[in-house]
Design a binder for these strands. Structure first.
Lengths: 337, 337
DNA sequence: CCGCCAAATGTAACTAGTTACACAGCTTGT
DNA sequence: ACAAGCTGTGTAACTAGTTACATTTGGCGG
């Protein structure tokens, strides 16, 4: 009874003893079964089964120097854009027999640095981060550990880490240009928080060359709710804009809902454009004109890059992914007032 | 030169040698710094810095027997319901200093069993699975490894593993009852794939007690796209139903869009109800009546349960989370034909 | 009938940490 | 003044695997 009371996990030597073979033989049964005689193999297999032996991942890792884990740091999981992107990463990593650990940062660089440390603590072999704004601590960590790391959602060939992403300023510019082409000259811009969010900042940067147009800005949390509120603010303004440029589809969706609620016709009374191209945007009514961000391709490319780096030591160069205007129903030529 | 050519990662003994102390002292500097004299500590710290020493996660894990990693198997990440749920899990696990590895299964039990094995291979200390339909291989694995594992999104006190979730049949029943209360008697049911999806199956089971109502069924992929298509099918039927019950909000959203496109008024001409209560559902127009599934609470509860099990050996009992009807604008009393 | 070779297996030394125990050196109490 | 006790540190034995090298065994050719 005392024996079975607290039977701790069996290890290689327990199996070896029971099967009356050496530890090396057990190890061989596990790794190179062809090099072991059938009878011996059978005995070892039986012992493994009897002891319910499961090899220790840590012990294997210590020998191989491999954990087969890569870590991804994202602001949130609760946003379709990051979820899709991580889905693509996971799928591709899986093909390289690598696993994905996800850590969320709430867009806070300090939390990010902290969570990066815990990723290193569990032995992550590579890191994927979002954007190019980080704590020095994160760079230190990457440098100290000689950790393969790539930054995504942002393309910047001069950045310390390889970047795989799109031209956020360009995406903003594309959206703005579309509205300018439609002769809009009073445009409200709805954007998410600027604190620590280089993507949003860059998109705003892309709006600098406005020609004759006059831009006004509204900041909002990244939620449909806040998109609605922003629309209210904009509609109640003295000089109503003829177009609303949302730096994210989530906000645009909220704006669209509020327009409907207030019986403002889109695009007749006001045009609305987003950036992201979420799965739902094509089905909104009116369907949302937006700038497509290739997050799925980005996820795949990122996973391939980090995998090749980890497995073959091939440090990737950056990759710029194209963003395209998807013209749908929510934008139209400004009607002469 | 030859020395620096390929300086492999420094280890404890390298640091000890350089600092002229023993390995134990270095280890103490790392783990119990207060037990080391200041001068010694400084020397060791300097050596650590000089060699860019980073302790090996695997070696630590082998001693502690801990990996601090838990694995979650979900059908997909590309669906708000799972993303929100995982976000909640990650957040709560993080509080226990545990990391989350995500593996996606495409709803395929065989892929699930396979990925569960890779989770064990990287040393996961606990497993979170979705639903109660799995391969024997998965159960074997859990049993062999004595792995803490909980099943979610489905409550079944008699299941082999502790379940933390809701009553899916009940959720279906609530939705149906709502429509019956509104005097609907011809109801179309739109549901996702039944293959290997016990949640959908259970929700359908909940629709058995129909009273006088007559139900028709349409199967669709879980996408807005397919929700639209299903609506087309339903609208073109000879005997048009007065209400559409969607077993998922994604489908309901598609149905709603199609109604708008075809100028079918909701809820005047037809009522629409969903199940899930996605973030966007409250903002649809008309806003979607649905059955709220507490996925965030489920995520938290699951994370707490698995953490307590791992850390303190407390095997959780199951937990039934309430589902509530959220009556909004998309349902109304059937108009006398 | 002996030696050579290959297949099968064992021994022991690795991987990189943690930690029980021993012990030196100094302070404090009697 | 000497024992006791505390602090700081070192030695070596652990954790659980992999693997280089050594050894045994048996078949087959000369």
């Amino acid at each position: 009874m005392a024996k079975t009371r607290f039977r701790k996990r069996a290890n290689l030597r327990d199996v070896a003893k029971l099967a009356n073979v050496s530890v090396a033989t057990v190890s061989r049964v596990l790794n190179t079964p062809d090099s072991v005689a059938e009878v011996t193999k059978a005995a070892v297999t039986a012992a493994i089964a009897e002891l319910r032996f499961v090899p220790s991942a840590a012990a294997r890792a210590i020998n191989s120097g491999r954990s087969r884990v890569v870590g991804a740091l994202v602001p949130t999981l609760d946003h379709a854009i990051f979820a899709r992107y991580l889905a693509a990463i996971e799928q591709t990593l899986s093909g390289y027999r690598l696993s994905l650990v996800v850590a969320t940062t709430k867009g806070d660089a300090a939390i990010e640095a902290e969570k990066a440390q815990t990723l290193v603590d569990i032995g992550a072999e590579g890191l994927i981060v979002s954007g190019v704004t980080h704590e020095p601590g994160l760079y230190d960590l990457i440098e100290r550990c000689q950790l393969p790391a790539v930054a995504t959602s942002y393309y910047d060939p001069d950045f310390l880490l390889p970047t795989i992403g799109y031209d956020n300023a360009g995406a903003g510019r594309i959206a703005l240009q579309h509205l300018l082409d439609l002769e809009h000259s009073r445009i409200a811009v709805v954007h998410g928080s600027l604190i620590g969010n280089d993507r949003t900042l860059a998109r705003l940067k892309g709006l600098e060359n406005t020609g004759d147009a006059e831009l006004s800005f509204v900041e909002a949390d990244l939620s449909i709710e806040d998109g609605c509120k922003s629309a209210q603010t904009i509609l109640s303004a003295a000089h109503r804009p003829t177009a609303i440029l949302c730096l994210s589809d989530v906000l645009a969706t909220g704006v669209l809902y509020e327009m409907k609620r207030q019986s403002v016709e889109v695009p007749k009374d006001v045009s609305v454009i987003g950036i992201d191209d979420l799965p739902g945007s094509a089905h909104a009514s009116p369907s949302l004109t937006t700038v497509h961000l290739p997050v799925v391709r980005m996820g795949h490319a990122t996973a391939v890059a980090i995998s090749e780096w980890i497995e073959n030591g091939l440090k990737p160069s950056g990759m710029l992914l194209a963003t395209d205007l998807i013209a749908r129903e929510s934008t139209g030529v400004r009607r002469p007032a």
